[in-house]
Structure formats: C-alpha cells, structure tokens
Amino acid sequence: SDEEKKVRDQAKRLGVNTEQLLKWARRQGDEDLVRIVERLLRS
C-alpha cells in the first residue's frame, strides 16, 4: 500500500530498520504510524 511504502521510505531516511522505526513511532506517540509499522512487521 501507499502507506507502507511511505513507512519504508521514512525508515530508510532515518537509517533504521522496521523494529527501530516502531520504537521511534511509539516515542513520537504517532498511533497511525505505529499501526502501519506493526502491520508491516506482521506481513
């Protein structure tokens, strides 16, 4: 999905993997991002 591509691009920009991005999203309190990243991790 578009959202998932955006998440992957953001992880690349930050230089982190998906698990690290999830931690980062939780720290930001970004519920939408957390949900998308969790979906990516499960897929």
Rank of each mutant, 00 (worst) to 15 (best):
D30R: 10
G15H: 07
E19T: 10
E31Q: 11
L14Y: 05
L21E: 00
L22I: 04
Q20F: 06
R42Q: 13
L40W: 10
I36W: 09
E31K: 12
R26V: 11
K6Q: 10
V16C: 15
Q28E: 07
K6W: 15
Q10C: 15
L14C: 06
V34F: 04
A25D: 00
A25F: 09
R42E: 10
S1Q: 10
K6D: 08
L21A: 01
L14T: 03
N17F: 13
D9W: 10
R13I: 09
L40T: 01
D9P: 03
E3S: 10
D2S: 08
T18A: 12
L21F: 04
W24K: 02
D32K: 10
K6G: 04
S1H: 08
E3P: 11
R8T: 06
K5Q: 10
D2M: 09
D30T: 05
L22E: 01
L14V: 04
D2Q: 11
Q28L: 09
R26W: 07
A11C: 15
G29I: 14
K12F: 09
V34K: 02
E4N: 07
A11Q: 08
G15T: 04
Q28Y: 12
T18W: 15
G15A: 04
V16W: 15
D2C: 15
R39C: 15
D30C: 14
V37H: 00
K6C: 15
R8Y: 14
E4A: 10
L22F: 01
D32S: 08
V7A: 06
L40E: 01
R26L: 14
V37P: 00
R13C: 15
E19P: 03
L14A: 05
K12R: 09
W24Q: 01
L22Y: 02
V16K: 04
I36H: 03
R27H: 12
E31C: 15
R13F: 09
W24R: 02
L21P: 00
Q28R: 07
V16I: 12
T18G: 07
W24A: 02
Q28G: 01
D32C: 15
S43K: 11
L40S: 01
G29K: 04
T18K: 09
V7F: 08
R13T: 05
G29S: 03
R8L: 14
K6N: 05
L40N: 01
E38H: 02
K6E: 05
G15D: 02
L21G: 00
S1N: 10
D9L: 07
I36G: 01
T18N: 06
N17Y: 12
K23L: 15
R42T: 09
L21I: 06
Q20P: 01
R13E: 04
G15N: 06
Q28A: 07
Q10W: 15
R35D: 03
R8Q: 08
D30Q: 07
A11Y: 08
L21R: 00
A25P: 01
R13D: 02
L22M: 03
L41W: 02
D9M: 06
R35H: 03
R39V: 06
S43H: 09
L14D: 03
K6I: 12
V16L: 15
V37E: 00
N17P: 07
L22R: 02
R39E: 08
L22K: 01
A11S: 04
W24I: 06
K12I: 09
Q28S: 09
R26Y: 13
D2T: 09
R42C: 14
E4L: 13
D2L: 11
V7M: 04
G15M: 04
D2R: 07
D9R: 03
E31T: 09
V16Q: 03
L40D: 00
R39Y: 08
W24M: 03
V37D: 00
L21V: 01
K23P: 01
D32T: 10
L22T: 00
R8P: 05
S1E: 11
E4I: 12
R42S: 12
D30S: 07
E4W: 15
I36F: 11
V16E: 02
E3R: 13
Q10Y: 15
R26Q: 14
G15P: 03
A11T: 03
V34Y: 04
T18Q: 06
K23E: 15
S43F: 12
S1W: 10
V16S: 04
L41V: 04
S1P: 08
L14K: 05
R8N: 05
L40A: 02
Q20L: 09
L41Y: 02
L41D: 00
E31H: 10
R39N: 05
G29V: 12
K5R: 09
K12H: 06
L33Q: 00
E4S: 07
L14N: 03
Q28D: 02
R27Q: 15
E3W: 14
R39S: 07
K5I: 06
V16D: 02
L22D: 01
V16G: 09
V34Q: 02
Q20R: 04
T18M: 15
E19V: 10
R27P: 01
R8E: 07
V37F: 05
W24V: 02
R26H: 08
K12G: 03
L21H: 00
R39M: 08
E3T: 11
T18R: 10
E4K: 06
E3D: 12
V37Q: 00
R39Q: 14
R13V: 10
K12S: 06
E19G: 05
E3Q: 11
R13Q: 05
R8G: 06
V34L: 04
K5L: 07
L14F: 06
D9G: 04
R27I: 14
K23I: 12
D30L: 15
L33V: 02
R35L: 05
R39L: 08
G15E: 03
V16F: 15
V16Y: 15
L41F: 03
E3L: 15
E3I: 14
L22S: 00
L40C: 01
R39A: 11
Q28W: 14
E4D: 07
A25I: 12
G15Y: 10
L14R: 03
A25E: 00
K5W: 07
E4V: 10
N17L: 12
R13W: 11
S43P: 10
G29R: 05
V37W: 01
L33A: 00
R13K: 12
